[in-house]
């Protein structure tokens, strides 16, 4: 199937123009928004988008790091470099001012900027990305066309949260955090598919809360847990890739979208 692919720009809530990876077949029925992992618009996101477009969808993946001040800072490599010094920090020290001060002293300028976004500006970053996604949604949503969303890791958390605020026909969440106000799940109008890795204890800690909301508000919900897999198992360019689980999750995703977006 021949695809048409481009990188265009869309105007976000604050007037900034953000990059948008856009891939579609000649004829398509619905649009799917793809929300990336913390690494940004990577080759994995692009290849996944192409793969999904071949199934008959228009697929759009925004680059949430494409503001002029972010482009050179929020790169995959620099985010990774900022993570390395954190290996020596136990989880209970992550918010400890003295521990953070020591980490910051050893970071270069870009690392310090990234770490500031992770720490004191973390809520600002979250709200900004949600607002960017909302802007894209409002630009793309058409009355006579279904719209879906899929997110991975950070993108999964963003997609999950966004699904409590905007109406998607089908939302697929790959190892993403649950909404912090779990009761917001009552606002989800479309179908929800949650994919989890068995060894992802942090993300999985709130599955029971998700299940409680599903039962309480009678949501259209599916879930699959893959035992023995680790966070980001679906990313075939990454360290924790699991082929068998990924192939199964892919088939479930396609079936989910076929039933809810067509």
């Amino acid at each position: 199937m021949e695809l048409e692919e481009s990188i265009t720009q869309f105007r976000s809530f604050d007037g900034n123009q953000l990059d948008l990876f856009d891939v579609k077949p000649e004829k398509y029925g619905a649009t799917v928004m793809v929300v990336s992992e913390i690494w940004g618009l990577t080759e994995f996101i692009k290849s996944f988008s192409r793969r999904l477009a071949r199934e008959g969808y228009r697929v759009i993946a925004p680059n949430l790091y494409s503001r002029p001040e972010d482009r050179e800072i929020l790169t995959e490599e620099k985010i990774m470099d900022t993570m390395r010094p954190m290996w020596s920090l136990p989880p209970d020290k992550r918010r400890d001012p003295e521990s953070i001060k020591k980490i910051m002293e050893n970071l270069n300028e870009d690392g310090k900027k990234i770490f500031t976004l992770i720490s004191e500006k973390r809520l600002e970053m979250e709200k900004r990305m949600l607002s960017d996604l909302e802007s894209l949604y409002r630009l793309q949503k058409k009355d006579n066309e279904k719209i879906g969303i899929v997110g991975f890791c950070m993108g999964g958390g963003l997609a999950f949260q966004l699904s409590t605020e905007l109406e998607f026909d089908a939302s697929a969440i790959f190892y993403g955090a649950s909404p912090r106000n779990i009761e917001d799940m009552k606002n989800i109008r479309g179908a929800l598919l949650c994919i989890y890795a068995g060894e992802d204890s942090g993300i999985n800690a709130t599955i029971k809360d998700v299940a409680e909301m599903v039962s309480k508000y009678k949501l259209n919900f599916e879930m699959k847990m893959y035992p023995g897999t680790y966070h980001a198992f679906f990313n075939d360019t990454g360290m924790s890739y699991n082929k068998d689980a990924s192939e199964d999750a892919w088939e479930r995703l396609l079936f989910f979208y076929r039933r809810n977006l067509q």
Partner: peptide, 13 residues
């Protein structure tokens, strides 16, 4: 939050 939560998950990975 979502952003920093993901960062720390990846620190562990």
């Amino acid at each position: 939050g979502i952003f920093d939560g993901c960062f720390y998950v990846w620190v562990d990975v």
